[in-house]
Design a protein around this nucleic acid. Structure first.
Lengths: 126, 126
DNA sequence: GCTTGACCTGGAGTGCACTCCAGGGGGTAA
DNA sequence: TTACCCCCTGGAGTGCACTCCAGGTCAAGC
């Protein structure tokens, strides 16, 4: 799989993939004899995982830290688990915050609806 | 209330408040005779609302749009309600996405725990 | 009367996460 | 063989949301 294929498969751009490699978020890939990057299925799986971390609000620096531990092998499992647990707690908090704010938004929308009804009635009475 | 008081009350910085005024997110305030900004309780309430929009991922440009409609008065109620409804839908989607990813994180954590248990057992057998 | 602290303005600088560009090479299809 | 598309590198540029700074005014406390 060449970089363009991986880009299509992940929804990222070719530029983003090269950027991820630069900063150490994507391990340096194999190259074919003309210097083009070649990727396997494991790159796709890793980027899907990275996408989930990103979707849950993890910053690049933290993801790179995780990637570095992963590159060191199974001896870092404990530390990686602790990172995931800490991140899980943040995500749970974020969900709680969003849910609370969703309630406030609903109140606001209900208020607007009530205002509009009041206006409609006032207009109907004219 | 002076700008420093409002900053303390909202948790924003003085710089951020002046920036919000510059871009039209905070209506221009009254000034005292030496040119210092003076705010009332309604500024605090507005900024709390803005904070909720921000916490739910609304960008500055959209918040400014909403602020402009608000400044135009009740005739824009319908449009403001529609903006809130559109935003509510995005927030609900975001919550669903986060919840799904929380599940995946839990699976990952469970996997690490299982690996660690396996390692413990192997070590105990040595 | 002088220092201190909060405030003012306009503009430059920061951090993040990309995104784009110039200048060049390689493989294949008409 | 020429046109086209994808790939390469190093480096500059972008958009967002602030954040900081220089140089200055003003009111209050010691």
């Amino acid at each position: 799989m060449k970089i363009g294929d991986l880009a299509r498969a992940t929804g990222l751009t070719v530029d983003t993939l090269r950027y991820y490699e630069d900063i150490g978020l994507l391990p340096p890939s194999q190259r074919d004899r003309s210097g083009h990057r070649i990727y396997g299925a494991e790159s796709l799986r890793w980027l899907e995982f990275v996408g989930r971390l990103k979707a849950t609000g993890m910053g690049i620096a933290d993801m790179v830290r995780y990637a570095q531990l992963r590159a060191k092998g199974p001896s870092t499992n404990g530390e990686r688990r602790r990172l995931m647990e800490a991140h899980r707690a943040k995500v749970a908090l974020k969900i709680a915050e969003l849910s609370e704010n969703l309630g406030k938004l609903d109140e606001k929308i209900a208020w607007y609806r009530a205002e509009e009804s009041a206006t409609d009635i006032a207009e109907a009475a004219e």
